[in-house]
């Protein structure tokens, strides 16, 4: 239907549609833009008018955020914990998913079913037992403890995505490798992993976002500052900054920028992996 033939009613609907979509974008982006904007204001500017633009952008908020609290340390902790748990998660789950997709052994389907039950367990119900396990392993208030938990939190999603990925790779590739005399491990690392790059990226992006953003277990499994992550540190800011609002907005900005960058770069991957995780099945 060309635009020439649109009736008045259709034209009104079309305008309403775009107004509605604009409203959705506004609702989604305004809070974040507001915070970023406010991080460049002074305390006085924020208190006098919450929605006005900063008169001259000031970096005092960022300077204060970095000096009042060891936010760079927390940023470092988050980077270490997120990176290590993402790499381990994808590696371990790729290994398991490959075996589930390719090898025949007794109890395979039962084991796969049991592991995918992890998807439906509400983890906040298990706060205390998970703490007990981590405590018993001597990993309370350590980065290793959080790495262990975060590696596990992404288990069901990665398993689902990666098994699907391996199932979609033609068997001929591996058979050629075996004919050439490559062993099981070498075939997996040198032939299969490169072929599964799409699935690995998808799983890694989702694992990264979940680990980077995780709050509840960080709260329960740490006490001091040695393993405190960035999201957790935000909750201390109101008290810590005692009404230094630009510093607090600066800290929030520092915490959200990595997620937004990763999402912007790997957008299509996130969408396709989410879809793969829930539309198929």
């Amino acid at each position: 239907m060309s635009h020439m033939q649109m009736t008045t009613k259709e034209r009104v609907l079309c305008v309403l549609k775009y107004l509605f979509l604009a409203l959705c974008v506004f609702v989604a982006l305004f809070p974040i833009i507001w915070v970023i904007m406010s991080s460049f204001k002074t305390n006085a500017e924020i208190l006098s008018n919450g929605v006005a633009l900063p008169k001259t952008p000031s970096l005092t908020g960022y300077r204060n955020a970095l000096t009042i609290s060891p936010i760079l340390n927390y940023f470092g902790h988050s980077i270490i914990i997120t990176t290590v748990s993402t790499v381990l998660n994808v590696l371990f789950l790729a290994m398991a998913a490959y075996v589930f997709a390719r090898c025949r052994f007794r109890g395979r389907d039962v084991l796969y079913f049991i592991l995918s039950l992890a998807m439906v367990i509400p983890m906040t119900a298990l706060l205390h037992p998970v703490y007990s396990v981590i405590q018993a392993l001597g990993l309370y208030d350590t980065k290793t403890g959080l790495i262990l938990v975060y590696t596990a939190l992404n288990l069901p999603m990665s398993l689902l995505i990666l098994r699907g990925t391996f199932l979609s790779i033609p068997r001929a590739l591996e058979e050629a490798a075996y004919v050439d005399g490559a062993g099981f491990v070498r075939t997996f690392f040198q032939i299969m992993l490169p072929c599964a790059k799409g699935g690995l990226t998808s799983a890694a992006v989702l694992a990264f976002l979940q680990s980077w953003n995780e709050f509840t277990f960080a709260l329960v499994l740490t006490s001091g500052q040695d393993a405190r992550t960035l999201p957790l540190s935000l909750s201390y800011f109101t008290a810590q900054f005692s009404f230094d609002y630009p510093a607090m907005f600066a800290a929030v900005t520092i915490a959200v920028i990595p997620s937004i960058i990763v999402f912007a770069v790997f957008q299509e991957q996130v969408v396709s992996s989410l879809t793969a995780g829930s539309v198929k099945e």
């Binding site: 974008v25 974040i32 957790l232 929030v252 999402f263 996130v270």
Partner: peptide
């Protein structure tokens, strides 16, 4: 894309943002 952004940033940040909103 824009509509996804609040879903991919941390809830701790969203919480702080709304505490101020």
């Amino acid at each position: 894309t824009a509509y996804m952004i609040p879903n991919i940033i941390s809830n701790a940040a969203i919480g702080m943002i709304f505490l101020n909103i």
